[in-house]
Design a binder for these strands. Structure first.
Lengths: 232, 232
DNA sequence: AAATATTTGTCCGTATGTATC
DNA sequence: TGATACATACGGACAAATATT
C-alpha cells in the first residue's frame, strides 16, 4: 500500500513546492515569502525539512532570509554559480587545472585590457597606486600579498561594471588563494616591478606602455602555459 | 574577539567546508563521505546545520545520500542547477547578466580562436560539418537548434584540451539553454550562413577567412554589448 | 529609549525507514 | 532472523536579529 513510484525525498518535493508557490503568485525580487511557520503549516511538514529546502534556495541565491524580518525573493544573478559551483571539480592538487585557470585569467585580462584602460578613472588609478604601496609593505615584511595582488587586478577590471566578469575573476582568485603555496620567495621582486610598471603607465595615461606592461606581467612562470600567440 | 566582518551564516560556511573537504581529499564520483554524525563532530556543528548544507549539495547533484548506506560524492554537472534555479520571468537584471555572459563567451572564443585553429584536426572539422548538417535539418523543420549550435562551438574548442575552459563554456551554454529568450525566428537563417562560413574556412584551412567568419558570427544581436574594440 | 513581539538561527532529543551483515 | 549503522523526519527549546509599540 506504499507508493508504487519511488517518490522524491520530502525536502526535494518541498523545494519544488516553494518554487511553484513563487511562480504561481508571481513573486519578484524583493517580494516577501510567508514565514517559516506559515509555510510549514501550509505544506504540512516539519520546520527542519522546510529549512533544508529553503536553505538550498538561499545558497543558490533564489531567496534571502533575515532574522526578525523574514524571507524575500531575490533577483537572480550568477555569482553563486561562479563562486561555489563552477570550479567545484577543480581540485587544488590538480596542477593542470590551476594552470588552465591562470591561462584563462591571463586571456581575459589581456582581452579586456583595452576596455579597462578606457574605463579607468583617475580615482581607480590612485587606488591601484595604494594597492602597490600595500604590496610593497607586505613584501618588505616578507609576507605574501595575495589579497593586495587581487585588489590590484580587481580594481583594474571593476571599472568595466561587468558583474559576471567580476564574479568569474573572483572565482579564479579564490582558487588561486588556496593554491598560492609555491613561489613564495621566488620572483616576487620582479612581480612587484611588473605591477609598478603597470601603474606608472596608467598614471602617465600611456596605453602602449600599459599594454606592454600587462603582457610582460603575464609572461612569467605560472602564466606560461599553452596560451602563447603562435604564428600560423 | 569575534570577527569584525559580518560572518556568513553557519550553513554556508559548512557548505564551503564540505566542498573543501571533498577537494582536499580528492574525492571523486562514488567515493563515500563520512557519516553525518562524524561530520558534525569534525566541524563542531549541529546536525540541522550540517544537513542544510548537505541537502543543498544533494539538490545540486554534488553528492547523494542513501539511508542505511551513507553519502557518496557524485559525478557533477551543471545541468541540474539550471533546471531548478531558473524559475522566473526574465527581468532586466537577469537580462543584463545574460548579456554580460554572452560578451564573455564572445571574448573567450575570439581570444582562443588562434589556438583552436592550430589544434583542430581534420576529424574535428568533419565533425563540425556534421553539426552544420544537423543545424540545417532542425532549421528546415522549423525547430530550435540550441544543442546542435552548442555542439558546433564546443567541438571548436574541445581540441584545446582545456578542462576549465570547457567547464566554463558548458556553464555559459547551460545558462543560455535555460533562458533561450529572444530571437527565436529572427535571424536564424543568417546565423546558419555564418556557421557555414566558419566551416568552409576551416575545410579550406584558411585562417584569415576563419577569423573573419568568427568575428562576423559574433557581430550579431545578442553578442553586441560593450565589448567593442574602440580606438584609444 | 525601552520593553515586547516576531522571525530566523542553532541546537537537542527521539522515532522511523532502509540497507548491510 | 536479528543486530547494527545510517539517513529521514518530527517536535521542542532557546538564542540572536529585527521590527513594533
Amino acid at each position: 500500500m506504499k507508493n508504487l513510484k519511488k517518490e522524491d525525498k520530502l525536502y526535494i518535493q518541498t523545494f519544488r513546492e516553494i518554487r511553484s508557490y513563487i511562480i504561481r503568485n508571481g513573486l519578484k525580487g524583493g517580494d516577501p515569502l510567508p514565514t517559516e511557520a506559515a509555510m510549514c503549516q501550509m505544506l504540512g511538514i516539519s520546520r527542519n525539512v522546510l529549512r533544508e529546502a529553503m536553505k538550498s534556495m538561499e545558497l543558490m541565491g533564489m531567496i534571502q532570509a533575515c532574522p526578525g524580518r523574514g524571507t524575500i525573493v531575490k533577483e537572480f544573478n550568477l555569482d553563486f554559480i561562479f563562486q561555489n559551483v563552477l570550479f567545484f571539480t577543480v581540485g587544488e592538487e590538480e596542477e593542470k587545472s590551476i594552470k588552465e585557470m591562470f591561462g584563462i585569467r591571463k586571456m581575459l585580462e589581456l582581452s579586456y585590457m583595452r576596455q579597462a584602460y578606457l574605463a579607468l578613472t583617475d580615482d581607480d588609478i590612485r587606488q591601484m597606486r595604494v594597492c602597490m604601496q600595500n604590496i610593497q609593505e607586505k613584501w618588505d615584511e616578507h609576507k605574501l600579498f595575495h589579497a593586495e595582488d587581487k585588489a590590484f587586478h580587481m580594481t583594474l577590471f571593476k571599472s568595466l561594471s561587468n558583474g559576471v566578469l567580476t564574479s568569474l575573476m573572483e572565482a579564479i582568485w579564490a582558487v588561486d588563494d588556496g593554491f598560492q603555496i609555491e613561489e613564495k620567495e621566488k620572483h616576487m621582486d620582479s612581480t612587484i616591478a611588473k605591477h609598478e610598471a603597470i601603474v606608472i603607465a596608467l598614471e602617465a595615461r600611456d596605453y602602449e606602455a600599459f599594454a606592454k606592461a600587462m603582457e610582460n606581467h603575464f609572461a612569467s612562470g605560472k602564466y606560461l602555459n599553452n596560451n602563447t600567440y603562435e604564428e600560423y
